[in-house]
Structure formats: structure tokens, C-alpha cells
Simulated assay, not measured.
Amino acid sequence: MTEGNFVDYIKIYASSGKGGRGSAHLHREKYIAKGGPDGGDGGRGGHVIFRGDKNMWTLFHLKFKRHFRAEHGSDGGSSRSTGKDGTDVIIPVPLGTIIRDADTDEILFEITEEGKEVVVLEGGMGGRGNWHFKSSTNQTPRYAQPGIEGQEAWFRVELKVLADVGLVGFPNAGKSTLLSVITAAKPKIADYAFTTLKPNLGIVEYRNHQSFVMADIPGIIEGAAEGKGLGHYFLRHIERNSLLLFLIPADSEDIKKEYDILLNELRKHNPELLDKQRLLAISKADMLDDELKSEIEQDLPKGIEALFISSVAQMGLTELKDKLWKYLNE
């Protein structure tokens, strides 16, 4: 899937169906001149429903169809025949999708389970037929209820990628390379900033046929929380991750400073992100000898466990997977 096909934000319009009209029919049959009211009820208008689909991971299918209208209910008929209900509109979305009211920005609900359905707009009720209104004082009512109008609204649909481990780092820190080495994912890799323009997901195979999901999030730059670079469009994906793996290359001028900047951007975006478990990996460590490693260890940030890895040289990756698995299952 190309970067242009990854869509994680869309605005759509939806309207539910109007209820069908009740019938004011009067029964007429040979030899029965005044059979009385027998008008049936109108059918219910169609609902607008969001449904979780685990086989989807982008909102690309909504990019070119942003208007959804459910079917109106059919009118009631004679012999107390109820009109047909309008067909519901079902909008499939990936797991991790949040639905907001486009006017108030209020979060209405989120979908994180396969097959979960949420009715976002209910169809209008069908009107009652005239036989409901028959009484001892009004035996031939010649009126029935109209159907209730449907509802309409604009919604903002946002996707937050679901993954166990989120890779956090500056552009060109080696996140895509790491993902390509320890998973079957094939992200775009090149020696320039912002190679990754969309989150990439990969499944890390662990021992005994166990696995966990890792996400390569587009690189953070200083000021990302204010919208610089790729801005907050990717920061929201980190909110779903259980564990944050900070990746800083060994040839960085100041590893502690880079870590503090990354941490600060997360804090400005959402302070709750700092409550997540964190692990620090120093990438490109194959260029270090023992003496250089010792020097770097003296200046590493406090309060976070760190280890040295090299994706290219396949160094420290087994230890990294062991650490990640341990953190995820504590």
C-alpha cells in the first residue's frame, strides 16, 4: 500500500431513512359495505451503522464516498399490512476508529472490536395506520400518522493504529529498518528524513508461536505537537500503543537531549502518554566498541532501561524481543 492510500482522517455526511406513512385504508369487500379501518403501519427508516472490521487498517475506502443515505421505510398497506423497513447503511471501519461529532468535536464512540456495531443515526419510526385509532366513538377514522423524519449529521472519522509496541524517534533513526528486520513488514527505507509517511504495522514472531504487533510511526521532530513536520496527524497513533520503544542512533550528538525532546513532544500532545511503559534502544550500535559503549552509558537518560542494537548486523535483537515481551506481559 502506498503512502497516498493510507487515510487516517475523513469527514463524512450521513442521513438515516424516514419512516413510512401509515395507511388510512378502509376495508372494502363484496357483501361488506363498511368493513372498517384496516390501514397498516409504515416501515421503519434505515439506520446508519458503523461496524468494526479487523481486515481493514485504513479509511481509504471513505475517501471517495463521503455521503451515506439510508433507505426510507415503505408506506403501510391495506389489511393491516406493515410497510417494509428501509435498508440500513453499514459503514465498515478499521479497529481503532474514533467517531466524533463534526460540529462539537465530541467523541461519540470508538470501535476496537471485530464485528462491533454502533447505530450512529436511528431511522425514523413508521407512522401508525388508521386501525390503531378506531374507538367506540370513532369507528371509521380516515386518518393515519405520517412517518417520522430521519436524522442527519456530519461526522469526523479518525483512525488510531492498534499496536502493542510503537516505535518513537526522529526521522531517519532506523525505525523502518528495525521493523523490516524483526517482522515481515516491508516499509519504504531510504537515507533521508520522512521516508515513512504513514504508520507501518508488522507482526513480531516470538517463541512458541507467540507474537505481538509493532508499529513504525512517522518520525517526530521538535515542534511536532504544534503541527510542524507531520505534526499531530501521526502523534495520535502512539496513543493506542501499550509500550513505547524509543529509538535513537548511536551517532547522535546528544542521546539524552534527543530523548528529552521526544518525551516533551509526547507530553505536549497528550500527558497521559508518559504513563505508558518505555524502553530505549540505541540503534546502529555495530559501529561502537566496548569503550565507546561505556562512555555512552554514562550519559544515558535516567529512569528508562536501555540496550544497544543493530538492525543491519542483527545485534541485540533477540534481547530486544525478550525485553519487549516481558514488558508487554508484566
Score class of each variant (00 low, 15 high):
G115C: 00
K116R: 12
K116T: 06
E117C: 00
V118D: 02
V118I: 10
E122R: 13
G124T: 13
G126H: 10
G126V: 11
R128H: 10
G129T: 12
W131G: 04
K134Q: 15
S135M: 13
S135N: 15
S136G: 15
S136I: 11
S136T: 13
T137I: 12
N138V: 12
N138Q: 14
Q139E: 12
Q139R: 14
T140G: 00
T140R: 14
R142H: 13
A144D: 10
Q145K: 15
G147F: 09
I148F: 05
Q151E: 07
E152F: 01
A153R: 15
A153N: 15
W154R: 06
W154S: 02
F155D: 00
F155H: 02
F155A: 00
R156D: 05
E158P: 05
E158F: 05
L159N: 11
L159W: 05
K160C: 11
K160M: 12
A163H: 05
D164V: 11
D164Q: 09
D164W: 02
V165L: 03
G166N: 08
L167G: 04
L167I: 10
G169E: 06
G169F: 05
F170E: 11
P171Q: 10
G174H: 04
G174M: 01
K175M: 02
S176W: 09
S176C: 06
T177W: 01
T177V: 04
T177R: 00
L178I: 14
L179A: 06
S180D: 04
V181S: 00
I182A: 01
T183A: 05
A184W: 00
A184V: 05
A184F: 01
A185T: 09
P187Q: 03
D191Y: 14
D191R: 14
D191K: 11
Y192F: 15
Y192C: 14
Y192M: 13
A193P: 15
A193K: 14
F194I: 13
F194C: 08
T195H: 08
T195M: 08
T195I: 09
T195G: 08
T195P: 09
L197P: 02
K198R: 10
L201E: 05
V204E: 07
E205M: 10
E205C: 06
Y206E: 07
N208R: 15
S211R: 13
F212E: 07
V213R: 15
V213C: 13
M214E: 03
A215W: 07
A215D: 10
D216E: 11
I217S: 09
I217Y: 07
P218C: 07
P218L: 05
G219Q: 11
G219D: 09
I220A: 03
G223Y: 01
G223M: 00
E226Y: 03
G227I: 05
K228F: 07
K228W: 02
L230V: 12
G231A: 08
G231M: 07
Y233P: 00
Y233V: 13
F234W: 12
F234S: 09
F234A: 01
R236C: 01
H237F: 12
H237W: 13
H237I: 13
I238H: 08
I238M: 10
E239K: 15
E239P: 04
E239T: 15
E239G: 03
N241M: 14
L243H: 02
L244D: 08
L244A: 07
F246G: 03
P249Q: 05
A250M: 02
A250I: 04
D251M: 02
S252Y: 02
S252F: 01
